[in-house]
């Protein structure tokens, strides 16, 4: 595929950089004790969320998983509200109820149970279909999720009832610390094709390539042609959560040579690129500072509906 810079290049880069800098800040701040719980960062996979969700239209639904920060930011979620959520602040996306992996805002739903979200996503797509809304569902999952049986029940029904859903399978090659060759038999694409769900597959971190593939698949879904799957082979640079990285450093370095950010950044005018980088750094610094200045979630809020405006 020939890739040319387009006016969207800056925005694609900016969105990926927002995720990268946010996640770097999360990892580097963890030891200072400002966060509750744990985290699962998206560093290295940014092109997936940004490339795919650039196809999103108003009202479309996004179903995400434990590694949801990148999806949430690419969806348009507030960086400040996400930082505040990690810090257990009243101003967090869910006011401190959900934390890092249970983020629900507008039409974005994330949950920390692998695979458990997939039938929900199919049910939402079915509901949109029978209500003739033209909305489609983007359902993200990882290679580890393919070990969960309910995923296959869901693929079967998605295909059987031809619901408007795009499954986005991000193969980052590890389920926590277990490499894909130790937890997965057969081919990933075959799993979808077994249910007659057409698959587009790419081993790339090029956001433009991913966007083009996603656009095509999303268009088919939107046209009422039934579910589609996008299998994206990627890599995460960070640990599964934090301090649980058992991978060979050489391997990580090898994948860092195909980093989605410089690949896209190099397509920009250097001055423009620098400006974007400065702006994103300022945005991240401001989001974290504001979140840290916000009040901690009040236990009294647990008994009343929250009024959250990220």
């Amino acid at each position: 595929m020939t890739v040319r810079p387009s006016p969207d290049d800056v925005e694609l880069y900016r969105q990926m950089l927002r995720i990268r800098r946010f996640e770097e800040k999360v990892l580097s701040s963890f030891s200072s004790g400002i966060f509750y719980g744990t985290t699962h960062t998206y560093i290295g996979q940014e092109a997936d969320a940004v490339g795919v969700l650039a196809c999103r239209e108003e009202g479309d639904i996004v179903v995400s998983n434990h590694r949801c920060h990148g999806h949430f930011l690419a969806y348009g979620g507030s960086m400040h509200a996400l930082a505040a959520e990690l810090m257990g602040r009243a101003t967090g996306v869910t006011g401190g109820r959900g934390g890092s992996q249970h983020v629900q805002w507008e039409d974005f739903y994330a949950n920390g149970i692998l695979g458990g979200t997939i039938p929900l996503a199919v049910g939402m797509a079915l509901a949109e279909k029978v209500q003739h809304s033209r909305r489609i569902v983007f359902a993200f999952m990882g290679d580890g999720t393919l070990g969960e049986g309910v995923v296959y029940e869901s693929l079967n029904m998605a295909s059987l009832w031809s619901v408007p859903i795009l499954f986005v399978l991000e193969n980052n090659r590890y389920a926590q610390t277990t490499p894909v060759q130790l937890h997965l038999a057969g081919e990933i694409a075959d799993r979808f094709e077994a249910f007659s769900i057409p698959v587009a597959e790419a081993d790339t971190v090029d956001v433009i390539e991913i966007h083009a593939l996603a656009n095509k698949s999303a268009a088919s879904v939107r046209a009422g042609e039934g579910p589609r799957a996008l299998v994206l082979h990627t890599y995460r640079y960070g640990p599964h959560s934090k301090g649980d990285d058992t991978r060979d450093p050489e391997e990580i370095l090898r994948y860092k040579k195909r980093d989605p950010l410089p690949l896209q950044g190099d397509r920009l005018d250097p001055d423009l690129r620098q400006r974007v980088e400065k702006e994103v750094e300022a945005e991240v610094a401001e989001a974290f500072q504001r979140a840290q200045d916000d009040p901690l979630a009040d236990p009294a809020s647990l008994t009343s509906p929250l009024d959250i405006a990220p």
């Binding site: 739903y109 039938p119 929900l120 079915l126």
Partner: peptide, 15 residues
Amino acid sequence: AGIVGLGVGMALRGL
């Protein structure tokens, strides 16, 4: 599991 999950999804979206 699948059909209960589908029911949850449908309920989330107005049905």
